[in-house]
């Protein structure tokens, strides 16, 4: 029993970092552009498909395919930001609806190119670690480490570099930041591209673990938004913790309840948090 619990706990943490990378993108775009980009889930799905095409169809090595996919998705993120989201800045409802529209456009295009058949990538890194009685596939460990590094890097970049501090300043007070020489339009475009890139990375890594379908995006963006709100939208390490909390809740929950209700735990958590700590777990309460 203990073995099962520990196994699910580890599994939850690993899936949780995938949620966290999306949650981080949600938090960053929300902080800087004032909109919640639901299309990040679709970007993630696209990242997974591009990675799969690059490795299994074009024969490019996986470690090279991942950055390529991330770049493609980030570029797309930049393009849609300049074409669409630039006109919905700080209008939450309009931004939400545009991003919902964008999801169906991306899903439709993906369906036309890759059809509904689930795609499975060949094993990138077979083999397992055995810790006590608990089995962890090597690839899952790698994915966890890579995502953790990226999240820590983002945190460091935001707190230690000029651009990062400019982003923080902008999130707190746009006008004062602009007066201090923060180039608003460049910052917003950069953050939009970076968030899309994060989602693309999540997808590229996801591709090595599970089968890819056009529906994965909607599940992950829901968890990502839940994670971001759970922690208090706008905090970087909070969104990391939020993602992990939801991942672990699902892992542990699936031991005691039918796994069909797996998607419900995050939702229940979210509702409870919003009701009792409306600003989120880690943000200062109003």
């Amino acid at each position: 029993m203990l073995q099962l619990v520990v196994g699910q706990l580890l599994n939850g943490v690993i899936v949780g970092t995938l949620y966290a990378i999306i949650a981080l993108g949600v938090t960053l775009t929300f902080g800087i552009t004032g909109i919640v980009n639901f299309a990040l889930g679709a970007f993630m799905m696209l990242g997974a498909y591009i990675t799969w095409s690059l490795t299994d169809a074009a024969g490019i090595a996986y470690p090279l395919a991942v950055p390529l996919a991330v770049l493609c998705v980030a570029a797309l993120g930049l393009v849609v930001d300049q074409l669409l989201f630039r006109f919905t800045r700080n209008n939450l409802i309009n931004g939400l609806i545009v991003s919902i529209g964008l999801i169906s456009v991306i899903v439709a295009v993906v369906l036309m190119i890759w059809t509904t058949t689930p795609q499975n990538m060949h094993y990138v890194l077979p083999g397992i670690f055995r810790v006590g009685g608990v089995i962890v596939p090597k690839m899952k460990a790698v994915v966890f480490v890579v995502l953790l590094c990226v999240i820590l890097f983002t945190y460091a970049a935001l707190t230690r570099t000029w651009a990062g501090r400019a982003a923080y300043a902008y999130a707190q007070n746009p006008e004062a930041a602009a007066l201090m020489g923060v180039h608003t339009r460049v910052l917003q475009a950069g953050v939009a591209a970076y968030s899309a890139g994060l989602a693309g990375l999540g997808g590229a890594l996801y591709a090595s673990l599970y089968s890819i379908t056009p529906e994965i995006g909607s599940g992950y963006i829901l968890k990502g938004v839940e994670g971001a709100i759970l922690a208090g939208i706008g905090t970087v390490m909070g969104s990391f913790a939020g993602g992990i909390i939801i991942g672990v809740a699902e892992g542990i929950g699936s031991i005691f309840f039918p796994s069909a209700y797996n998607d419900a735990y995050g939702l229940v958590f979210l509702v409870l948090i919003l009701l009792f700590k409306p600003a989120g777990l880690f943000a200062p309460q109003r």
Partner: peptide
Amino acid sequence: AICFRFKLRELYFAIVTLAFSELARLVILN
């Protein structure tokens, strides 16, 4: 009553109503 008693606005209202509709779908599905 839950949403409005706790003054959920804009995004938060949208997300919580989405959460409840997902819960309803899961119950019907399972």
